[in-house]
Each structure stands twice: as structure tokens, then as C-alpha cells.
Amino acid sequence: MGFFTDIEMEKAKDIITFGLLESAKSLEVFIKLEIRLDFGDDFSISENLSNKNITAKSDEVYLLTSELIGEIKGTSYLILSKEEVKSIMASVYPNNEFTEEKYIKKSNALVLETDNIITAGVMKNLANIFNYRTYGGVPQLNIVNHNEAVRIISEGTKKDDYVFFKAILSSKTGNIKADFIWLLDKAFVEAVKKVSKNRKISLTS
């Protein structure tokens, strides 16, 4: 583990989980589908992100990337399959009868907004707990095949002094199972160490 003691790791997981729950709640409100937060077999914050941790998807995927700007730097990745985007579109626009061109425009705009909203859940929590000025940049969308998405994320995560974690945002309706991957720079580690010393710190502060 190295960078955290057991107590710091627990604190870090609490902070991240709380933010991710905010993200899941925001997603639920925005796309009008019941969303569950899932960590797979084990929730870990680690110095390496293995490709095998990325859920395989067969088709082209929508890879959304947001940069975290401010006192904590980092990147978030959200991966949605075409089918998942279709489910979100059907939920947000139940009576949609868009032409193909309009559908592409609408769905691209919708997934970008989805990413913007859920990324803010984690960031707001980091900013509030650490009392840091930190916010997300404008999200970017790449529609690529799954292997290319894995390659882009692997390239992005080949960084020293960063830690990684991943959660899955899932929904029974629409069969959504979206990987939500984060890397944060060591300012996050330092901030966790600082708040761990203060036992009275509240997750909602």
C-alpha cells in the first residue's frame, strides 16, 4: 500500500465513497433511472490501475474524460456503451423520434452533460472536506472501440505520483454498468493525511 496507513486508507475510502454516492444520486435525478453504486469485488485506492479492472464492452464506447483543476489535480473517465447511451436517451427523451443526425447531436450533448454532473459529485466533496479550491474542466467525448478506450485510459494513468480508484454506476433498468475511473495526484494523499489527524472532521463539512 505504502502511501497510506490503514487508518488513512479507511478515511480516504470514506471520503471517496461519500463523493461517489453524491455522483450516483445526481445521475439518478438527471437520467431518471435508479442507480446503484458498485465497487466490484473490492474497493481499493492504489498506485496502479490494471487494464483488467476495466469492464469489457463489446461495441464502440463513449469515453468521457474530465480534468480536475485546482489544488488537487486529476482526471476522471466515464465509459458508456452505445446500448447504455440508448437507454439513457430513452429515459431522458421518452418520446424521442429524432432523425439520425439529430439523435447523434442530442446523445453526444446528453452524455457530456451526464459526465459533467456526476464528476461534480466527487469534486464537490473533495473541495468541501479539504477546504480546497478544486473544480472540473469541460468534459471531452471520444467515441472509440473498447480496446482504444482502454489504451487511452492506460496512457492517461501511466503517471507517477497519482492514485487510482474505480466504481461502477449501474442500473437494472436499461442494463447500465458504467465504469467511473479516477486518478488523483498526491495532493489528495497529503490532504487525506492531514484530515486523518483531525478525528473530528466530518464528511459533510
Binding site: S26, N116, I117, T119, A120, M123, K124, A127, N128, R133, Y135, G136
Partner: peptide, 8 residues
């Protein structure tokens, strides 16, 4: 905005 920090 999606940013909801009190200080912001």
C-alpha cells in the same frame, strides 16, 4: 452549474 461548493 454542477459546482455546488458553498464558497464558490
Amino acid at each position: 452549474s454542477a459546482l455546488g461548493q458553498d464558497d464558490v
